[in-house]
Amino acid sequence: MSEDGKTSDAVDAQVLRSGTIRVRSEDDILRARQEARAVAEEIGFSTTDVTRIVTGVSELARNMHLYAEDGIMTWREIEAGRDSGIELVFDDEGPGIDDIQGVLRAEHSTSGGMGRGIQGTKKLMDAFDLTSNAEDGTTITVRKWQ
Protein backbone atom coordinates (compact mmCIF):
# COMPACT_ATOMS: atom_id res chain seq x y z
CA MET A 1 0.00 0.00 0.00
CA SER A 2 2.21 2.86 1.20
CA GLU A 3 5.95 2.65 1.68
CA ASP A 4 6.90 2.89 5.25
CA GLY A 5 3.83 3.37 7.43
CA LYS A 6 4.89 4.58 10.81
CA THR A 7 1.86 6.35 12.12
CA SER A 8 -1.63 6.53 10.70
CA ASP A 9 -2.61 9.48 8.57
CA ALA A 10 -4.97 10.56 11.34
CA VAL A 11 -4.69 13.48 13.74
CA ASP A 12 -1.37 14.33 15.27
CA ALA A 13 -1.30 13.12 18.79
CA GLN A 14 0.99 13.55 21.71
CA VAL A 15 2.28 10.40 23.31
CA LEU A 16 1.99 10.38 27.11
CA ARG A 17 3.46 6.96 27.74
CA SER A 18 4.03 3.73 25.89
CA GLY A 19 5.11 0.14 26.17
CA THR A 20 5.79 -2.93 24.08
CA ILE A 21 4.95 -6.60 24.18
CA ARG A 22 6.75 -9.10 22.02
CA VAL A 23 4.30 -11.64 20.60
CA ARG A 24 5.69 -15.02 19.64
CA SER A 25 3.50 -17.48 21.54
CA GLU A 26 -0.10 -17.94 22.60
CA ASP A 27 0.79 -16.85 26.10
CA ASP A 28 2.11 -13.61 24.63
CA ILE A 29 -1.26 -13.02 22.95
CA LEU A 30 -2.80 -13.31 26.40
CA ARG A 31 -0.20 -10.91 27.78
CA ALA A 32 -0.91 -8.41 25.00
CA ARG A 33 -4.61 -8.55 25.83
CA GLN A 34 -4.00 -8.08 29.54
CA GLU A 35 -1.66 -5.17 29.02
CA ALA A 36 -4.06 -3.46 26.60
CA ARG A 37 -6.90 -3.99 29.06
CA ALA A 38 -4.94 -2.47 31.95
CA VAL A 39 -3.89 0.57 29.90
CA ALA A 40 -7.38 1.13 28.47
CA GLU A 41 -8.90 0.94 31.93
CA GLU A 42 -6.34 3.36 33.31
CA ILE A 43 -7.07 5.81 30.52
CA GLY A 44 -10.68 5.61 31.61
CA PHE A 45 -12.45 3.94 28.70
CA SER A 46 -15.94 2.55 29.34
CA THR A 47 -16.36 -1.18 29.87
CA THR A 48 -17.73 -1.56 26.35
CA ASP A 49 -14.84 0.37 24.80
CA VAL A 50 -12.33 -1.65 26.83
CA THR A 51 -13.97 -4.78 25.45
CA ARG A 52 -13.77 -3.40 21.89
CA ILE A 53 -10.10 -2.53 22.32
CA VAL A 54 -9.09 -5.83 23.90
CA THR A 55 -11.05 -7.81 21.32
CA GLY A 56 -9.26 -5.92 18.55
CA VAL A 57 -5.91 -6.59 20.21
CA SER A 58 -6.76 -10.25 20.39
CA GLU A 59 -7.55 -10.42 16.69
CA LEU A 60 -4.47 -8.50 15.57
CA ALA A 61 -2.04 -10.16 17.96
CA ARG A 62 -3.28 -13.60 16.91
CA ASN A 63 -2.97 -12.77 13.21
CA MET A 64 0.55 -11.51 13.77
CA HIS A 65 1.51 -14.70 15.59
CA LEU A 66 -0.28 -16.89 13.07
CA TYR A 67 1.21 -15.40 9.91
CA ALA A 68 4.52 -13.90 11.02
CA GLU A 69 5.14 -15.98 14.16
CA ASP A 70 7.03 -13.15 15.76
CA GLY A 71 6.06 -9.51 16.14
CA ILE A 72 5.77 -6.57 18.48
CA MET A 73 2.74 -4.78 19.85
CA THR A 74 3.40 -1.22 20.93
CA TRP A 75 0.76 0.60 22.95
CA ARG A 76 0.69 4.36 23.44
CA GLU A 77 -1.49 6.52 25.59
CA ILE A 78 -2.17 9.50 23.36
CA GLU A 79 -3.69 12.94 23.66
CA ALA A 80 -4.89 15.44 21.08
CA GLY A 81 -6.36 18.60 22.46
CA ARG A 82 -8.85 17.48 25.04
CA ASP A 83 -9.19 14.01 23.66
CA SER A 84 -7.37 11.10 25.16
CA GLY A 85 -7.04 7.73 23.59
CA ILE A 86 -4.97 4.70 22.87
CA GLU A 87 -2.86 3.78 19.87
CA LEU A 88 -1.78 0.22 19.21
CA VAL A 89 0.79 -0.78 16.62
CA PHE A 90 1.31 -4.36 15.49
CA ASP A 91 4.56 -4.69 13.65
CA ASP A 92 6.05 -7.83 12.17
CA GLU A 93 8.60 -8.84 9.58
CA GLY A 94 6.58 -11.69 8.24
CA PRO A 95 5.75 -12.50 4.64
CA GLY A 96 3.33 -9.59 4.24
CA ILE A 97 -0.21 -9.67 2.94
CA ASP A 98 -0.67 -10.31 -0.77
CA ASP A 99 -4.14 -8.98 -1.26
CA ILE A 100 -4.69 -6.15 1.21
CA GLN A 101 -7.97 -5.01 -0.28
CA GLY A 102 -9.22 -8.55 -0.23
CA VAL A 103 -8.30 -8.96 3.43
CA LEU A 104 -10.00 -5.71 4.35
CA ARG A 105 -13.17 -6.67 2.53
CA ALA A 106 -13.39 -10.39 2.91
CA GLU A 107 -16.39 -11.54 4.80
CA HIS A 108 -14.87 -14.94 5.28
CA SER A 109 -11.22 -15.63 5.06
CA THR A 110 -9.59 -18.59 3.44
CA SER A 111 -7.62 -19.46 6.53
CA GLY A 112 -10.58 -19.21 8.84
CA GLY A 113 -9.44 -16.17 10.71
CA MET A 114 -7.59 -13.33 9.15
CA GLY A 115 -10.03 -11.45 6.92
CA ARG A 116 -12.81 -11.55 9.40
CA GLY A 117 -10.57 -10.55 12.28
CA ILE A 118 -8.99 -7.59 10.52
CA GLN A 119 -12.19 -6.37 8.98
CA GLY A 120 -14.01 -6.70 12.29
CA THR A 121 -11.27 -4.90 14.19
CA LYS A 122 -11.55 -1.98 11.81
CA LYS A 123 -15.16 -1.58 12.85
CA LEU A 124 -14.29 -1.60 16.54
CA MET A 125 -11.69 1.17 16.26
CA ASP A 126 -11.80 4.85 15.29
CA ALA A 127 -8.74 4.75 13.05
CA PHE A 128 -7.12 1.88 11.21
CA ASP A 129 -4.04 1.85 9.04
CA LEU A 130 -2.38 -1.08 7.33
CA THR A 131 0.89 -1.20 5.44
CA SER A 132 2.31 -4.45 4.18
CA ASN A 133 4.84 -5.74 1.72
CA ALA A 134 7.06 -8.74 1.29
CA GLU A 135 10.27 -6.91 2.33
CA ASP A 136 9.20 -5.15 5.49
CA GLY A 137 6.36 -7.31 6.66
CA THR A 138 3.12 -5.90 8.02
CA THR A 139 2.34 -2.95 10.25
CA ILE A 140 -1.16 -2.31 11.50
CA THR A 141 -1.91 0.80 13.54
CA VAL A 142 -5.23 1.34 15.28
CA ARG A 143 -6.52 4.14 17.46
CA LYS A 144 -9.45 4.49 19.75
CA TRP A 145 -10.50 7.83 21.22
CA GLN A 146 -12.47 8.22 24.39
Binding site: T47, T48, V50, T51, R52, T55, E107, R116, Q119, G120, T121, K123, L124
Partner: peptide, 14 residues
Protein backbone atom coordinates in the same frame (compact mmCIF):
# COMPACT_ATOMS: atom_id res chain seq x y z
CA UNK B 1 -22.94 -13.26 27.68
CA UNK B 2 -22.00 -9.88 29.13
CA UNK B 3 -23.55 -6.76 27.58
CA UNK B 4 -20.18 -5.37 26.47
CA UNK B 5 -19.32 -8.71 24.88
CA UNK B 6 -22.68 -8.85 23.10
CA UNK B 7 -22.19 -5.32 21.72
CA UNK B 8 -18.69 -6.11 20.51
CA UNK B 9 -19.70 -9.43 18.97
CA UNK B 10 -22.56 -7.80 17.10
CA UNK B 11 -20.26 -5.05 15.78
CA UNK B 12 -17.68 -7.59 14.71
CA UNK B 13 -20.41 -9.32 12.79
CA UNK B 14 -20.40 -12.68 14.43
Amino acid sequence: MRPSVAITAAELGF
